[in-house]
Every structure is written in C-alpha cells, then in structure tokens.
Design a protein around this nucleic acid. Structure first.
Length: 260
DNA sequence: ATGCCGACTAATAGTCGA
C-alpha cells in the first residue's frame, strides 16, 4: 500500500497537480493538508474518475483543511483532534482503510505557532499535548496506525539547510522539538529517518528568496508509525521534484510504502 | 534588519503562512 502526504496549499488552485500525482503515481491513499476550502467546494470529479472514489475531509473556509483520498473504502471516520471541543480549526481527520490489513490513518496539519512566544505558540504547544494524548491511545489500540502530515516541526538541525536561521522560530524552538520528540519516544517510528540518514533532505522550500533554487529547505512533513505499522514499512521517501513544477505548493509529497 | 512570495477574503489591503 502506497500512502502519500502532501501539504497542497489550496486544493482548488492545485487540482491539476493532485490529478497528475494520482494518475501517474497511483497512491492508494493521499493525505492532504491546507486544502483551504470548505468541503463542499473541494473538486472531486477528476479524482473519482481516476478511481479515487472515497474522500473524507474536514474543511474550513480560507484556512487549514485536511483530507484523505482513497481507492478503497474508508471506515470509522472521525474529525477533529480530541481534547478541546471549542477548537474549530480543521487540522485533524482519521479513518481506517482495509487492504491486506486494516490501517488506522490520521491526517494532520499541526499549527505553525509563529510568532513565538505568544498565543499562537501557546495554541501550538497545547495542540501538541492533545496530539500526544491521541498518540498514546493509538498505541494502546495495538493496531497498525500512522499519523501523517505537516507537523510544522523541524526535528533536528540536519533537517534545515540553515538551522541557525530557525532558532527563534516556532518550527524549531526547543519546546516544539521536545514535544515532537516526546511523542516519538512513546514508541513511534519516524518513517523517513528510519530509512535515510544525514542532512539535505527537505519537504518545504519557501516561495521567497529563491529558496528552492538555493535548496534552502526544511523537513517538516512526517509520518509517525506505531510499532505494528512500522513492522509493515517497506520504504519512505520525499518527492522533491514536485517543487520544480509550475505553480507548485511550497511543500512536496512524502511517500510511505507499506506491506499492507 | 527587513522583506522577498503567494494564498485567502462579504478583497482591491490586510492577514496568514513558514
């Protein structure tokens, strides 16, 4: 089972890029973030025509928004990260897909948190504490499960071209990194780092200052796998070439291949 | 030191993102 996660930065503006990826690369599952659209305005006809008959989404006008596209039925759908019923931001969705094995899929768009310190950073850290709680519950379920998406966290210095430029940024501040590591330490496998060592692997390049041309990137889009899911991992890779296309998202797809 | 760019909106300037 091939699963991709991609912060698309407007699904309506980039419908054709999504269509190309589905048609040419044939993921079984595609997790999308920053759809920036109410659910009813997400284009679906082209996706359906390519065999992606199932879509679940949590939408919001203008901001945020997460979706999961699938060739296979999605079951037990839930929307919203538990822990704060007042939180209306569209950042979390879950569903179960049944292939050779059932896999619990969690699609997430973790808050940016800038400027830090401040209320947005407080929201980010509170959201990460709710994420930790949900992650613990996923482990307790003992079924293969993964959390895929834009974490807005640079885990290590090697995950930025210029780490010194990020020291005060919410994506790299010690509290953000510690909260991410705390979740990993519960027993999750960070899929990409289980496969590839070393610096120079990024999933985001800013639109500004010729970041792509300078390869001034950061790695902030991740898969975290429960032990039962990590056992199924064949491979994980970043599709950096996507950033070179016309009118690209500032993020590129990250891929996971599971024996499921 | 700042902004660069690009997305959104009861838009045409302000806000957000990372």
């Amino acid at each position: 089972m091939k699963i991709a996660t991609w912060n698309i930065n407007s699904i309506r503006l980039r419908e054709q890029l999504v269509t190309r990826l589905l048609a040419e690369e044939q993921p079984d599952i595609l997790c999308l973030q920053e759809c920036k659209s109410p659910v009813e305005l997400i284009p679906q006809d082209q996706f359906r025509a390519l065999g992606y008959r199932y879509m679940v989404a949590r939408g919001q006008k203008g901001y945020n928004g997460v979706a999961i596209l699938s060739k296979y039925p999605l079951e037990d759908i839930t929307r919203g990260l538990p822990g704060d019923p007042e939180d209306e931001q569209a950042r979390w969705i879950e569903a179960t897909v049944v292939g050779d094995k059932a896999v619990r899929l969690c699609g997430l768009y973790l808050p940016n948190g800038n400027p830090a310190p401040g209320p947005k950073y407080d929201y980010k850290l509170a959201w990460m504490e709710r994420l930790r709680a949900r992650a613990e519950a996923l482990l307790a379920d003992e079924m293969p499960a993964l959390m895929a998406g834009d974490y807005n966290v640079i885990p290590q210095r090697e995950d930025a071209k210029h780490p010194e430029a990020w020291t005060e940024d919410a994506l790299f501040r010690p509290e953000s990194r510690a909260a991410f590591q705390r979740i990993v330490n519960l027993g999750f496998t960070e899929a990409f780092r289980a496969r590839v060592r070393g610096a120079g692997h990024y999933s985001f390049w800013d639109y500004q200052a010729n970041s792509w041309e300078r390869n001034n990137g950061i790695r902030i889009d991740h898969f975290l796998l429960t032990p039962q899911c990590a056992d199924l991992m064949n491979d994980c890779w970043i599709e950096a070439d996507e950033r070179a296309r016309s009118k690209p998202s500032d993020h590129v797809p990250v891929w996971l291949d599971l024996a499921a």
